[in-house]
Simulated scan of single mutants.
Amino acid sequence: MRPLLTRVLPLAMCLFIVGCSTRPLPKYQRPIARTQLQRVRTTAYTDTESDHVQYSNHNALGGTLQCGAIHSAAADWSRWPAGTIFRIRETGELYRVDDYGWALSGTNTIDLYKPSRSAMNAWGVRGVTIENLQWGDPRQSLSVLRPRSHFRHVQRMIQELEDRMEELVQPVPAMGSSPGPVLIAATSTPALSAAPTPIPVSRPIVMASAPAPQNAPRAIPVTNSSRANQIARDPFYATGASR
């Protein structure tokens, strides 16, 4: 039995690598304007679904996925660099970009981490307004991605980070007047070696999640617990979301 396993496991790994290298990347979208307020498309994921189980509850920075005062989020790091903190205006929830995925590369979609499949399915697909409170560091994002450049979706993020670096390191003007930058307490997720540039905001951060108002965006229900089926029904996504 053991000799059989020693032959099967390497074969399975080879098939996985070949599958990742031949799978088409998501359709490319031009980056949306880098402003403090953005209207974005969001999806949801959890660590127990089939396309994330190999990573357990770990994020792309080497820490654990968070679901507390600040939640984890996955995105293309050339649009929202690792460490970016934003608030969803419709719900009041705070998110920190500490993850990425195959299906997000080259897109303007943000994937929100949820603690369970039921919470993931309840969120579905929603258009929301986010308020970027603190931008991550694109240089540090690039340093994390470069050792993983054998993946095609990482190559795409690296290329765009390099092309947009001059733009991404520039501060983004805040809306209206503000007495000073917002300081956000650190979470258990390891911080990047260089602190991201804070963006002043015109109102205090509400750390507790607030109930959604009556005019909150309508969620598109996901009737199957498999996120792969959710993505397959969505013409924007390619199948799968591996790192």
Rank of each mutant, 00 (worst) to 15 (best):
M1P: 14
R2G: 08
P3M: 06
P3W: 12
L4V: 11
L5A: 12
L5P: 07
R7V: 13
V8Q: 07
V8L: 15
L9H: 04
L9F: 12
L15I: 11
L15W: 07
F16W: 09
G19F: 09
C20Q: 15
C20G: 11
R23I: 05
R23V: 07
R30T: 13
P31V: 01
I32C: 07
T35D: 08
T35Y: 02
L37E: 13
R39I: 02
R41M: 10
D47W: 04
S50Y: 03
S50P: 02
D51N: 15
V53F: 10
Y55R: 10
N59H: 11
L61S: 05
G62E: 05
G63S: 04
G63T: 04
T64L: 11
A69R: 05
I70Q: 01
H71V: 00
H71M: 05
A73M: 02
A74G: 06
A75N: 02
D76R: 02
R79I: 14
R79C: 13
R79P: 06
R79F: 14
W80F: 15
P81M: 01
I88V: 15
E90Y: 02
G92V: 05
D98F: 00
D98K: 03
D98L: 01
A103E: 04
A103H: 14
L104R: 08
T107W: 01
I110E: 04
I110D: 06
I110A: 06
D111G: 07
L112G: 03
K114Y: 03
P115D: 05
S118Y: 06
W123A: 11
G124C: 05
V125C: 09
G127S: 12
I130S: 00
I130H: 00
L133Y: 02
D137F: 04
S141Y: 01
R146Q: 12
P147S: 03
F151S: 05
F151N: 07
R152G: 09
H153F: 05
V154R: 09
I158W: 04
E160H: 09
E160G: 03
L161W: 12
D163C: 04
E167G: 03
V169N: 06
Q170N: 07
P171E: 11
V172E: 10
M175Q: 13
G176N: 07
P181A: 05
I184F: 04
A185V: 13
A185N: 15
A186M: 09
P190D: 02
L192T: 11
S193V: 05
A195R: 06
A195P: 06
P196N: 08
P196S: 08
P196E: 10
P198M: 09
I199S: 09
S202I: 09
I205C: 03
M207Y: 01
M207I: 01
A208Y: 00
A212V: 08
Q214L: 14
A216D: 12
P217I: 02
R218T: 15
A219W: 01
A219K: 04
A219P: 07
N224M: 08
S226L: 14
S226H: 10
R227F: 09
A228T: 11
A228N: 13
R233N: 13
P235E: 10
F236Q: 14
T239Q: 15
A241H: 15
S242F: 15
S242N: 12
S242E: 13
